[in-house]
Design a protein around this nucleic acid. Sequence first.
DNA 1: GATCTATGGTGTATCGTAACACCAACTGAT
DNA 2: ATCAGTTGGTGTTACGATACACCATAGATC
Lengths: 353, 353
Amino acid sequence: MAGIHDVAKMAGVSASTVSNVINGRAGKMRAETRQRVLEAIEALKFTPNSAARQLKSGHNTTIGLIIPSVANPFWGAIAHQIEQATRKRGYRLLICNAERDPEVEQSYAETLIGSGVMGVILGSSPLNFDHLKDLIARGLQVAAFDQRARESGSGVACSVSVDQELGGLLSAQHLIGHGHRRIGILTGPVRTNSRIGRVEGVRIAHARAGIPFDESLLWQGGGVSGFGDMQGAELGRIGVRELLSRENPPSAIVCGNDMFAIGAYAGARDLGVSIPEELSIVGFDDIALSELVFPPLTTIRQPTAAMAEMVVDLLIHCLEEVGAPREDNFVNIRPQLIVRGSTGPARRRPNRE
Amino acid sequence: MAGIHDVAKMAGVSASTVSNVINGRAGKMRAETRQRVLEAIEALKFTPNSAARQLKSGHNTTIGLIIPSVANPFWGAIAHQIEQATRKRGYRLLICNAERDPEVEQSYAETLIGSGVMGVILGSSPLNFDHLKDLIARGLQVAAFDQRARESGSGVACSVSVDQELGGLLSAQHLIGHGHRRIGILTGPVRTNSRIGRVEGVRIAHARAGIPFDESLLWQGGGVSGFGDMQGAELGRIGVRELLSRENPPSAIVCGNDMFAIGAYAGARDLGVSIPEELSIVGFDDIALSELVFPPLTTIRQPTAAMAEMVVDLLIHCLEEVGAPREDNFVNIRPQLIVRGSTGPARRRPNRE
DNA sequence: GATCTATGGTGTATCGTAACACCAACTGAT
DNA sequence: ATCAGTTGGTGTTACGATACACCATAGATC
């Protein structure tokens, strides 16, 4: 492996000059010298050793992304968009899978900080950031994605999120507007701020319409320890079957995300229940698939491309200008209800009682 | 940020001893000393700086994964499984999105090598590895995933892949067995070895059955420059509409992957064509979604979990034992036909001629 | 009592780069 | 002729962890 000195020797200059060439300080030398150095770099296939580089400069241009699961297309798409946004700004992205497990998250964050990363985007929407407090104290900048980091006490530098509560509200209002009175919820464990917000929105919609929300219709799948991110669709399938087998089943279901909804399609089919005639379903996220399944899924759209650009912008800003976080570092975006074919008027319910 | 010296000072030992503690050379010191060091590490929240560490040792325990697109659930799942396998072996994984673009691939590979990564798993199945030749010459170990690296001239260290040709063969044979005589193919540009293999398999099945393969039914979407990995489903939708609008449309379609197939479902629906009664569809990959869509998708299963373990094993082996690559570093796995509901007997075709 | 050998450490060079303080040579003005 | 300013560099040091050679002390052996 060629080092900067080899290049310097070949070009007949000092290592410092080579360093200057590499780092674009073109004004510091003659064009001719620069050319010679460039040729030597080319000839020796020299790549600056980033370990050494960041050892000296103390930081690097990599940011980390910690998400629940790349296996969920929503997070896959997000990762993809964040990666693009990151690359456009001259940074690189390190993607980590943490399954929402605080320990794994912490371990990855430590790994990241150890490799010089100073900024991390966290997609898991945890209830608190205690597990990262030490890291934050050591200078790690954390951007929360998927929840608004309200109390500045958390130490989070910035956040970008859809207004989860509004999303839940919109989906439930849409259903209520169609005459649905018993609305179920299918979600992973309601132990993250994003899910809490969504469920709360559904409750508020009920309250506003003067309809009681039956807590027994809140189905949470994903086990005691897990969060059901990997197997969202499978859980949706199971959950819907369970809800529909009840005494007094719901006529509509709000899903924690689109994968749950797609699983719910399968579960409803298993039972011979047709959508939207007998059961209305609303998703959340608006992944690309939502439009392709049948019936096309009514869902809450998160403008992920714009959000990706935004977090990356905010985080890099926090990284480069070490000012105190301002209030507008915490962005809340209005989600949008996309009405497609999976929701319809509530049919007269065969009154069993 | 605490360094090793701060820890050393606090524990009243030298930096060397701290280093020994960190690196598990427990025999080198008294248990009591070790304990003191450990406590100091804890108190100072010390994380070894991996940049400095790998500067000295020259390498690190990170491997890279370069895939076409995390936005495709197949690759998302693969990334997830490779990440798990990697972590189990004490390595970390750097995931990169390269869209099959040789230039982006090369740039990421350079970035990776610059950050000390010595092994990369490549999922893009390119026709050749010329763009990585220089990097390989500089010591980068490349594992090909999704294609068998036949000629050792490529410099690839190992490979794990499903037998693509066999996959194509199985899917086409299944359809031919159901009486289909006009079989279409829906795929991204046939400019990667994996796709070439799959298509070739379909051709072979035709040849064996003595049926001519109509080349005009090979639909390739994804543009001249792109590879159609991000928008597979969208392309499948467009492609199927195009094929079905022909004079003499196919009665069955083999799809390049499951996302194409799912898109094809939507396209067929757009045209009011029912699956499998009027059109049979076979996918490739067997992603989790395949079982959930309706009708459940007949597809070719790639045993991704096992394959992920295998590549990681092989690559780490190549990394650690610097022996010459043996023949069994190149694994070819038999894919499996999973028959579900999207394929059925060919109906009598309304003979338009 | 002298020497040997574990045991349990320490001191320091080293990795490849960047930052920073220099400096040589030339130009043009006085 | 002298000086200031500019251009185009050079030399040295520091970054943080590690490997390796080295060393101090205690107890064992002759």
